[in-house]
């Protein structure tokens, strides 16, 4: 029998941190989005031609959203599980009548929800700078939910793996951020020389951004079905990794 109460209290407890720092939670994405629009959209963007019929200011909206969603999903979820491990309060989760998967739903669900809220705020802010029309709202939402969940899951894995704060920072900083910047968030892959186009195909973020961008403007670097397939592959990899960790009690139980 599933312990729904436990899932609920873990979820709400994680969300409390978000509401407690509501000002930061809202102000920082609003400010950073505005800054990106001023720098890329207006200053630099004015000298860049439209890409496949989409103005540069509009073109960067999905990439910008993905940049924040990916980094925040990873950092929120990793911090969420790392902190109880670090302070020792994890003892309560381990001794409670819940399975690891129930705890996972609570933690990852909360991190993914925060990212969804963040994405909404960013898109809302972007709407002040450009006229945003979403061609395929359903697919936009589907891509967003899948990305939030899979990267929160990835963050959860990092939080379990990390033994100290340095390790916790290293993955978002050295892996996620470069992948997002090099994954066509701010440019179309077709603008790159052929060799780098091929290299970029190995970057999983490319598929997220491309699919997400397609749901807005019907413009994409790779086909939508490939995008969707790649996100699902990433999700399955994360789920398998997590289930292996839970099975072995990796860094959780001795």
């Amino acid at each position: 029998m599933i312990n729904f109460r436990a899932i609920k209290v873990i979820y709400l407890n994680e969300m409390t941190r978000f509401w407690n720092t509501l000002f930061q939670s809202i102000a920082s994405p609003v400010i950073s989005t505005a800054l990106y629009f001023v720098v890329f959209g207006s200053a630099i963007g004015s000298s860049i031609q439209s890409i496949e019929g989409v103005t540069y200011g509009l073109f960067i909206v999905p990439g910008l959203t993905m940049l924040s969603v990916l980094t925040q999903s990873v950092s929120n979820a990793s911090f969420g599980i790392f902190f109880p491990k670090f302070t020792g309060t994890i003892y309560e989760i381990l001794s409670a009548p819940i399975s690891f998967y129930e705890a996972l739903i609570g933690y990852v669900g909360a991190a993914a929800s925060k990212s969804m809220i963040l994405a909404t705020i960013i898109l809302f802010t972007a709407n002040f700078f450009v006229d945003l029309d979403i061609a395929h709202p359903f697919w936009m939402l589907a891509f967003l939910v899948l990305t939030c969940v899979s990267f929160s899951l990835f963050g959860f894995i990092i939080g379990l793996w990390a033994g100290n704060f340095e390790k916790l920072q290293v993955v978002p900083l050295l892996i996620i951020t470069p992948l997002v910047f090099l994954g066509g968030s701010f440019y179309s892959v077709s603008m790159l020389p052929p060799f780098w186009q091929t290299v970029t195909l190995f970057n999983p973020v490319l598929y997220l951004v491309s699919g997400f961008r397609w749901s807005f403007f019907e413009v994409s670097d790779v086909s939508v079905s490939t995008s969707l397939f790649m996100i699902l592959v990433f999700l399955v990899i994360c789920l398998s990794l997590v289930s292996w960790m839970f099975k072995t009690g990796y860094k959780l139980k001795e």
Binding site: N3, R5, A6, K8, V9, I10, N13, T16, E92, I93, A96, P97, I98
Partner: peptide
């Protein structure tokens, strides 16, 4: 909130 959390966690 922390005692409520514990109570919920233990179903």
């Amino acid at each position: 909130s922390t005692v409520n959390f514990s109570r919920g966690l233990f179903n």
